[in-house]
Design a protein around this nucleic acid. Structure first.
Lengths: 149, 149
DNA sequence: TATCATGTAACTTATGATATTACATGAACA
DNA sequence: TGTTCATGTAATATCATAAGTTACATGATA
């Protein structure tokens, strides 16, 4: 994966689960994501604790959605992932002993806050259901995932 | 340094140079930044190519500003640093072979673009001179840099 | 009870940012 | 003119973190 793509990756996985009509194994999901099943389990384990998915062991087991796509937003998923850092740039330190640095921080922090707030606001506007609808508009005759299983 | 803090660090260095009335050595700047002189030289070398600073070798040498603080904005410095990535999160891949992933990307990219644009717009609104004025409002009797040389 | 799938700890790898070393170049000064 | 100071820069080392992998335990189903 490139950079921190957890949110993007998780949404991908969730949409695939939404399309399936039964449990999907971490192995299947891992192939779609071109990663390792353990990585999938690790990520989904966090979402399960918060009620977004559930898992079953054994034959016929795997992962399923357990939330209402109409009420869960991208922001909810973002938070469920632990609210990872949004910005790649930031201040060198938040408690400098240097007045010059404090001045720089103060000025930049406002810009950082605003940009973050905008992004999160956009995330709040989109539900998983809307994302799924958007997918179906595009989905015509093709397979969900071309190029890999 | 924490995360990608080049811009914040560079602004710190530039303001210190603005306060000095002669050339400042990379060793002095490095102490202020709690880093290595070579790191300072590497970063400032890029800015020098674009006319923001200049350097002199030998006795009495060091680094000086060579731009008009009133016209140079934070955005200019950001660009001079090579326009580093702003967002820590992003899409797994921009050219997926999977329609699900394409849908996710499309929806998220708009939010990413807007947030980036907002941040850069804010950077464009602030000149180095304004940053310096803000510093002087705060600067009363204290040393520029307490806690280290 | 054999198989399948998750649960999870421990470990390995890959990557990128940062720091360091070492030495060359060139300017100022005595 | 040679000593000192400071930059210029290549090469290397260190560090942190994300991602991937292995190994094995747990539990469900057939």
């Amino acid at each position: 994966m490139i950079r921190d793509s957890k949110l993007s990756g998780v949404l991908h996985v969730l949409l695939h689960m939404a399309e399936a009509d039964g449990p999907v194994t971490s192995e299947t999901l891992a192939k779609m994501m071109q990663t390792n099943p353990v990585v999938i389990r690790r990520i989904l384990a966090g979402l399960r604790e918060q009620g977004y998915v559930n898992s079953e062991k054994g034959h016929g087991g795997g992962w399923q959605l357990s939330c209402d796509l109409n009420t869960v937003t991208l922001h909810d998923i973002y938070v469920a992932l632990g609210s990872p850092a949004i910005l790649a740039i930031g201040n060198r330190t938040e408690s400098p002993g240097c007045l010059v640095e404090e001045a720089v921080n103060t000025v930049m922090n406002q810009a950082f806050r605003d940009a973050e707030a905008l992004l999160l606001a956009r995330f709040s506007e989109v539900t998983l259901a809307e994302l799924s609808r958007y997918l179906h508009q595009r989905l015509q005759n093709a397979d969900f995932c071309r190029g890999h299983d």
